Simulated assay, not measured.
Amino acid sequence: MELTQQKKQLVEEVGLVIEERANLSPLASRIYALLILSSNDGLSFEAIVCTMQASKSSVSNNINVLLQLHYVDYYTKPGDRKRYFRTSHFYIKNTLEQQVHLIEKELSVVQKINDFNKNHNPEKFKNEKSLGLLFEEHLEDQCANIHQKLKAIEAFQNQA
């Protein structure tokens, strides 16, 4: 499978973002990016190995990680022994759920910091109250926005 230069660059760019955001290996991130940028038909294992120019065992190990995380799934075609890989129908939902989980953890810590400073460092809380509360509000807004998008995704999936 020959990639255009534009697609190669985009796989690399998307892969770097995924690597950082999802804490995946560089190869898993690029495989995932490749599948995001591929058709719904997905790609065969051989096509992924050829495109990634990596060993079969490395590609296999990284695909297994992506399968376990439910980022990708696979299917077979009748009469064809090959497995075809594609992004999971839930990959956007999974990504948003991971983001909201991290934001909620951070929000909990920020609320504890604000409460602690209010009770134990009243002068600091008085001087920095607006900053801590603005950040808390920002995190709450992000959570609410992501929850709203998750409901919209769920409604979309129920229509399909």
Score class of each variant (00 low, 15 high):
residue 12 E to A: 08
residue 108 S to P: 09
residue 29 S to E: 06
residue 37 L to Y: 07
residue 9 Q to K: 14
residue 97 E to Q: 14
residue 62 N to C: 02
residue 122 P to A: 15
residue 75 Y to K: 13
residue 101 H to A: 15
residue 63 I to K: 01
residue 90 F to C: 09
residue 24 L to K: 05
residue 75 Y to A: 03
residue 129 K to H: 08
residue 41 D to R: 14
residue 4 T to F: 06
residue 100 V to Y: 09
residue 22 A to G: 02
residue 151 K to H: 04
residue 143 C to I: 00
residue 143 C to N: 09
residue 102 L to W: 10
residue 95 T to C: 03
residue 2 E to F: 10
residue 124 K to D: 11
residue 91 Y to P: 01
residue 42 G to H: 04
residue 58 S to V: 06
residue 2 E to N: 14
residue 59 V to F: 01
residue 54 A to T: 02
residue 78 P to C: 03
residue 63 I to C: 01
residue 141 D to H: 10
residue 135 F to A: 08
residue 126 K to W: 09
residue 111 Q to S: 11
residue 88 S to R: 06
residue 46 E to R: 03
residue 63 I to P: 01
residue 120 H to G: 06
residue 70 H to N: 09
residue 103 I to A: 11
residue 100 V to K: 14
residue 152 A to S: 06
residue 99 Q to E: 15
residue 8 K to Y: 11
residue 83 R to M: 02
residue 114 N to R: 15
residue 20 E to G: 04
residue 62 N to A: 01
residue 147 H to C: 01
residue 81 R to D: 06
residue 91 Y to A: 07
residue 41 D to C: 01
residue 94 N to A: 03
residue 21 R to P: 00
residue 156 F to R: 04
residue 100 V to F: 08
residue 159 Q to W: 03
residue 125 F to A: 10
residue 147 H to E: 00
residue 3 L to S: 07
residue 114 N to D: 14
residue 20 E to Y: 09
residue 1 M to N: 11
residue 107 L to D: 10
residue 119 N to C: 14
residue 143 C to Y: 04
residue 7 K to A: 07
residue 104 E to Y: 13
residue 22 A to L: 12
residue 110 V to G: 09
residue 93 K to R: 14
residue 98 Q to Y: 12
residue 79 G to Y: 03
residue 28 A to N: 07
residue 1 M to H: 12
residue 67 L to N: 04
residue 90 F to M: 11
residue 5 Q to A: 11
residue 38 S to L: 05
residue 126 K to T: 11
residue 34 L to E: 01
residue 25 S to R: 12
residue 119 N to E: 15
residue 103 I to S: 12
residue 14 V to N: 05
residue 91 Y to Q: 09
residue 8 K to E: 15
residue 36 I to L: 12
residue 5 Q to V: 15
residue 99 Q to F: 08
residue 20 E to T: 06
residue 63 I to S: 01
residue 112 K to S: 14
residue 116 F to W: 15
residue 115 D to L: 13
residue 153 I to D: 01
residue 146 I to K: 07
residue 69 L to K: 00
residue 73 D to A: 00
residue 103 I to Y: 14
residue 86 R to H: 05
